[in-house]
Every structure is written in C-alpha cells, then in structure tokens.
Design a protein around this nucleic acid. Structure first.
Lengths: 134, 134
DNA sequence: CCGAGATTGACAATCGTTCTCAACAAGCCG
DNA sequence: CGGCTTGTTGAGAACGATTGTCAATCTCGG
C-alpha cells in the first residue's frame, strides 16, 4: 500500500448533510435510517450517496463503523483510537479508552508472530435505565 | 423469552455432516463455502439447512461466529469463553484466553451501570509466515 | 412399528449494499 | 467571469448473503 493517496475529496452539499446528520446522533445509526432522517428533513440525498459518504467518513477516521445484526452502523467519533460500550436496547454509547487492552493485544499478537494489527473490542449490554425497565 | 426452552434438537445426517465439516476446518468459513465443500464431498445438504445447522451450533456454543466483510463466518471452538487472533491473509486462527480483558470489560461496564454483558474481542493481523511473504 | 412433530430442500422472497451511467457541480485555470 | 476537467450524484437495476415457505421426509418416544 502506497498509503496516503487518498482519493481527492470534494466538499458537497450532500456530504456535509450526511456528516451533520451523523454528528447529530448520539447513537450508532445505519445508512438506511440516516438516509430516511435526511429525506424526512427535506434533503434529497440519494441512498447510494449516503452509503458512499459514510464509507468515506469512516475511511477518513471521522466515523466509527461496526457491524450489528447484518447491517453496518456508523457513529461520529473522536479522532483518537477507542472502543465502545453500547446499550443493546437504547443504543446509548460510551467511548472507552483502554491502554491496557491495547497493550495486551499487541503482546499476545507478538507472541504469536502477528504484525499489522487491527482489532475490534466492543462491549454490548443493557444500560442502567434499560435494565431498570425489566 | 422464557429462557432456556431450547428447541428439541434431533440428530440428523445433515446436522452431523455440517458439524463434521466445520470441525475439519482450522479456519473460519462461511456458510456458503461450507455448503460447497459438502456438495463437493458428495453430500446433498441444502444451503438453507447449512445455515440452520450453523446457527444451531453457534447457539449451542459449539461454534464461534464472527462477521467479516458482510458475511458471517463460523468455526468449531472450545466450549470455554475465548477470543481470537486471526490472520487476515491466510485465515489461521489462534484462540485466546484473557481473564484480564474479561475483568476489564466487566469493570468499565459496571462503572457505567451496564449489565447483561456480551463482548467481542477479535484481533486481526498478519501471521509471521504471511508477513514474511511481503 | 406408529404417529407427532421436528427437519429438510428447492425455490422464492427479503434486505442491505454496491454498481451503472447519464446528468451535474466543485475547483481550477486563463 | 466562463469554460473545463473530473469527482459526485441519484434512480434504479443488480447483487449476494440470508431467511421464509411448504410439502415431503425422517427421528424418536411410546
């Protein structure tokens, strides 16, 4: 990979709309629902464009993506590396930093001779509120 | 959900074939490719059946499932809770136990009032051999 | 051995995502 | 400013993985 030969990215009304809509949500959202929100809000972006915009944002590190139930969910995120604690009922999300886990991952991987690491660490559960509703 | 009212599971030729084929693979495989292997091996299982069998195995804790590139991959696994270190080139997989990570997860989740936890911790990378080929 | 009911398999249906392609617009240069 | 080059858009078709349908079949308890 000759690395950073990032496709020249233009600023368009649609791209901004997606970025904004994504930032407005506290939770992880699917491309589909984001598209609906935008349409509901009067915007006329196409579904394909939303997919493309989200993929671009994720690629640029402006959004986190995670797979859940067969679909990909996105969420605006802080630029630093982190993981998530997600309520599987209401979707509330807490960003986690875990230097210890990073260290552990790097260590065990090294022990097995693995390089160029990448990892996913996501914790799902029920937040206090949702748990109380049971 | 009245919890553990596990659907009465019968032992059938197809189910056994799937279990066996899965156990024969060291790597994570998709339902589709497993189905092809079975057909290639002379078995006549239907694709839908392979999906159902794999879902059942995963539910019973006999197999691990992970999503990758839009499809779900399965792999026979040890019955104890563990995570994976996977070579993204050759698919080689190492099962990891990490009490420390479990503890960490439980702790941060508790700090935020989350309960009924579940988590995914997967490390992807290039194993020594594959890395050497570059 | 029998019968109830779980299981199967071929195929249709669904659902999220990507592709296609002509129309469009952002940034650039003169 | 006006035109040009090229990335971008949108509608719909195409796609691939997965799930549903339903009659035929097979398991297993009795």
């Amino acid at each position: 990979m000759t690395a950073d030969d990032i496709a020249p990215r233009r600023t368009t009304r649609q791209r901004e709309a997606v970025r904004e809509a994504l930032g407005a949500s506290e939770e992880f959202v699917s491309a589909q629902s984001l598209h609906q929100s935008l349409r509901a809000g009067g915007s006329t972006v196409g579904l394909a464009t939303v997919y493309r915009a989200l993929a671009a944002l994720a690629e640029d590190g402006e959004a986190d993506a995670l797979q859940s139930g067969g679909e990909v969910l996105y969420r605006a995120c802080t630029p630093t590396h982190h993981h998530h604690l997600i309520c599987r009922s209401c979707g509330r999300t807490v960003e986690l930093e875990a230097a210890a886990v990073e260290r552990w991952a790097g260590q065990v991987a090294a022990e097995h001779g693995f390089v160029e690491l990448e990892h996913t660490v996501d914790i799902f559960g029920l937040c206090g509120e949702c748990a109380a509703e049971r």
